[in-house]
């Protein structure tokens, strides 16, 4: 069945994040990060069956604890086994303030990193940890190795 305009704009790697209350998460993720709801499917009980929020040409899927193997940090003692990294190209400090106003806990305030990014780290109301970064200066591999003492491969 040919349907025109079906080219998928979504970046091919997507995170699906689990929440006890995914509807609340849709609201606080929009408030904190400006993610925009692009798809929401609710069953006849009002439960979230699927949702996607758009950020640039990426999406994050915001879902419920839909199986015994899918849990919010709020249900497993706050532990994270995966975190999502957000790369932005403007004012990371303002981004941090917006997250703070949306009741996200700022775990690490914005700070310049040896690899040329300025980053902060925050925790959302259900315990998911998010890192946000803005590149603020061009750093060569040699400079980064010197600054960090690390051996770096794959640096363009």
């Amino acid at each position: 069945m040919a349907v025109p305009n079906t080219k998928d704009w979504r970046a091919p790697l997507m995170s699906a994040v689990c929440y006890r209350d995914p509807k609340a998460a849709l609201k606080f993720l929009e408030a904190a990060f400006g993610f925009e709801l692009s798809m929401l499917i609710e069953d006849d009980q009002g439960n979230v069956a699927h949702s996607e929020m758009r950020f640039g040409d990426a999406v994050v899927m915001v879902g419920s604890e839909w199986s015994d193997d899918h849990k919010s940090p709020a249900s497993i003692g706050g532990k994270n086994t995966q975190t999502v990294h957000i790369q932005i190209d403007t004012d990371v400090d303002a981004h941090c303030e917006r997250a703070r106003k949306a009741s996200f806990e700022i775990l690490v305030e914005p700070a310049d990193q040896f690899y040329g990014d300025r980053t902060y780290r925050c925790r959302d109301p259900e315990g998911h940890i998010w890192t946000v970064a803005q590149t603020v200066q061009a750093v060569s591999r040699e400079e980064a190795e010197q600054a960090s003492g690390l051996k770096i491969t794959g640096w363009i």
Binding site: L40, I41, D43, G46
Partner: peptide, 11 residues
């Protein structure tokens, strides 16, 4: 309650 399918796009 009823089911809902919601989609949005910036134009």
């Amino acid at each position: 309650m009823t089911s809902k399918v919601y989609v949005a796009l910036r134009v």
